[in-house]
């Protein structure tokens, strides 16, 4: 029987704990190697420790487009529980024409399942971007837009949240670490029922993190500013007047003041500060909306504006 050197054992464990504490995979690997050689832990245990540390280092940026897609689908499904979809085929078709013709000019034109847009049956002035490209716009927000160019600005802003994975960034790191650990451990075979149950729990919690950020707490100011700046670039590339984002924000500010700070106001920085930040990037060209665009915009949103 092999004697276990107590000093080496303690040293190895100290190294392991230090490595786990500081999250340094390399030190852990040396540590687990030493511990394994000293017979303190089995090869399987060493492997599992190393795997755990690698999982800790993974962030939302490591979620694959496929994982992002499934997260986004669940986020949208959950948002529908508080914001029912608006079943208006013609208006939704127009929204998708406009949105998808903008998305092709995005810095991230390809997501796992593509960009899709839907109106929500709510008077709240709001819009949400679920991860992967499911973009939701309330009737209240639509009413706030006076032209296709302004609606394009709203959609461009949401597309840029998807491009920059702002929704995914809301997921708490602990949940991802758990999920990545389960995924790594189970890579060789299909998930067993227990692993599937824990993974589903982490998934549900991750989805709630995103929904909470979209509907209640909001993204950070920096993220909003980044999405605004990227939206200006996107509008420019797609040929829409970029100043439409400014007129849109200003009108929203007026309407939100009337609405008493609900919806968008709750989750977004003030329009004034956003316009201020945009002043240097967006070209202040004269806004003359094209007659053909104005006509199709009015035709598409007419039934919705008239319904209340």
């Amino acid at each position: 029987m092999k004697a276990r050197p107590s000093f080496l054992t303690m040293a190895c464990f100290a190294l392991l704990i230090a490595a786990l504490f500081f999250g340094c995979a390399e030190v852990t690997e040396i540590g687990t190697q030493l511990a394994w050689e000293a017979g303190v832990i089995s090869a399987d245990e060493a492997e599992s420790l190393n795997r755990g540390v690698k999982a800790i280092e993974k962030t939302y940026q490591d979620l694959t487009p496929e994982q992002e897609y499934y997260t986004g689908r669940a986020v949208a499904a959950q948002v529908f529980q508080s914001y029912p979809p608006l079943d208006q085929p013609e208006a939704n078709a127009y929204l998708n024409l406009l949105g998808q013709s903008l998305a092709v000019f995005s810095n991230r034109p390809e997501t796992f399942g593509g960009y899709h847009f839907l109106l929500l049956d709510s008077d709240e002035i709001n819009a949400f971007a679920a991860p992967g490209g499911l973009i939701l716009v309330t009737r209240g927000m639509l009413r706030c837009c006076e032209s296709e160019d302004e609606l394009a600005a709203v959609l461009a802003h949401e597309i840029c949240h998807v491009e920059k994975k702002h929704g995914l960034s809301a997921i708490k790191q602990g949940r991802l670490t758990e999920a990545f650990t389960i995924i790594a451990a189970e890579s060789a075979k299909q998930l067993g029922s227990e692993e599937l149950a824990s993974l589903t729990r982490e998934f549900e919690a991750s989805v709630s993190d995103v929904v909470m950020t979209l509907t209640t707490s909001g993204y950070s100011r920096t993220q909003e500013r980044d999405a605004d700046a990227a939206a200006v670039q996107l509008l420019r590339r797609a040929g829409y007047p970029e100043a439409s984002i400014i007129t849109m924000l200003q009108r929203m500010d007026e309407r939100l003041a009337d609405a008493g700070g609900l919806g968008f106001a709750k989750t977004h920085p003030s329009a004034q500060s956003r316009v201020g930040a945009l002043a240097s990037t967006a070209r202040q060209t004269e806004l003359v909306s094209d007659a053909a665009r104005q006509e199709r915009f009015s035709a598409a949103i007419q039934p919705i504006v008239a319904s209340h």
Partner: peptide, 30 residues
């Protein structure tokens, strides 16, 4: 692997989330 259709199927089976409109939305292809 991970957040995938297996997890989605479990949520559907448990009746936690309704994906009807998510699927309708995904069918808007231009």
């Amino acid at each position: 692997k991970g957040f995938n259709e297996q997890v989605e199927a479990k949520l559907k089976a448990e009746g936690t989330l309704d994906y009807t409109w998510v699927d309708r939305m995904a069918a808007f292809v231009i």
